Amino acid sequence: MKRIPRVLAGGIFTALSFPALAQDPAIERLTENLAVDGRSMPVKDIQETPLDGFYEVRLETGERFYTDVEGSYLLVGDLYENAEGGLVNLSDQARNAERAERLAAIPDSQRVIFRGVDEPKARITVFTDTTCPYCRRLHEEVPRLNEMGIEVDYLAFPRGGMSSQGARELQQVWCADNPSEAMSTAWHDEGLEGDRSCDNPVEEQYHLGMQLGVQGTPAIVLPDGRMVPGYVPAERLASLLGLNNQ
């Protein structure tokens, strides 16, 4: 069952800020009406849906819901299209597109990258934690993934929060002179050396992961934005990427 967005359940509300939302009178009207208990919601974006008279609202927290133009009725859950080929999850499609767009904006300098000698055929992004056993198991598959032409880009997601051992180790990895070598060292229990006080993106990536729906590690994101939770063998990943027959 889908949970009710925190802001609808009495969370923190902030002023509406819609620099680009007042493109159509209906959306402009909705921005004026959308409030709960007299308080505005932290809305990031509003989009039309195929459902006549209803709009998709995306919050700053990454959560979504649907509402009529008056803001009088709220639907929490996924929107499906009953298409000829079966049910199509339109909410999932929107989440995937946003995920792909936001990850594409992260520069290589903020990733820990493992790629083979040849030009990669595909790239996956993995939210990881050095204290996660299944992350270590996935990392053991990286040489095979590279052989198959799959580049593996790591982002930080300390599952225990920013005060955890994982957060400290991830910060050391990103602060190392050779982050990829430091990442492998951490999973081999060889102990990390060096400080973690450099300007690193670990906390920013942790919050990004939460906004994009990461709930555990490893969380593998495919190029189209689909997220695959947990450990997945190399051959299965290649199949998901359409590379098995190449």
Rank of each mutant, 00 (worst) to 15 (best):
E60N: 11
T61P: 10
G62E: 08
G62F: 01
E63C: 07
F65C: 12
Y66E: 06
Y66T: 04
T67W: 00
D68V: 15
D68F: 08
V69W: 13
E70C: 02
E70W: 06
S72H: 01
S72K: 09
Y73N: 10
Y73W: 12
Y73F: 11
L74R: 07
L75I: 13
V76H: 04
G77Y: 11
E81K: 01
E81T: 00
E81V: 00
E81G: 09
N82H: 13
A83K: 13
E84A: 14
G86E: 14
L87G: 01
V88M: 08
N89L: 13
L90Y: 02
L90K: 05
S91P: 02
D92E: 10
Q93D: 10
A94F: 11
R95K: 15
A97K: 11
A97N: 09
E98T: 15
R99D: 04
R102E: 15
R102N: 11
A104P: 06
I106S: 09
P107A: 10
P107F: 08
D108H: 05
D108Q: 06
Q110E: 15
R111T: 05
R111E: 07
R111I: 05
V112E: 12
V112T: 13
V112P: 10
F114P: 02
G116N: 09
V117C: 02
D118E: 13
D118G: 07
P120Y: 00
P120K: 01
K121G: 03
R123A: 14
R123P: 10
I124D: 07
I124N: 08
T125V: 14
V126N: 03
T128W: 02
T128L: 04
D129F: 04
T131Q: 11
T131Y: 11
T131I: 14
C132Y: 00
C132D: 05
P133S: 05
P133H: 05
R136M: 09
R137V: 04
L138R: 10
L138F: 15
L138Q: 15
H139S: 14
H139Q: 12
E141T: 10
E141K: 14
P143H: 01
R144W: 13
L145G: 06
N146M: 03
N146R: 01
N146P: 04
E147K: 09
G149V: 13
I150T: 04
E151T: 02
E151I: 00
V152N: 13
V152F: 09
V152H: 07
Y154I: 12
L155D: 00
L155M: 04
A156K: 04
F157N: 06
F157D: 08
P158R: 06
P158K: 07
R159V: 03
G160N: 07
M162W: 05
M162V: 15
M162E: 11
M162Q: 11
S163Y: 03
Q165M: 12
G166I: 07
A167I: 06
A167Q: 01
A167L: 00
E169Y: 04
L170R: 01
Q171C: 12
Q171E: 10
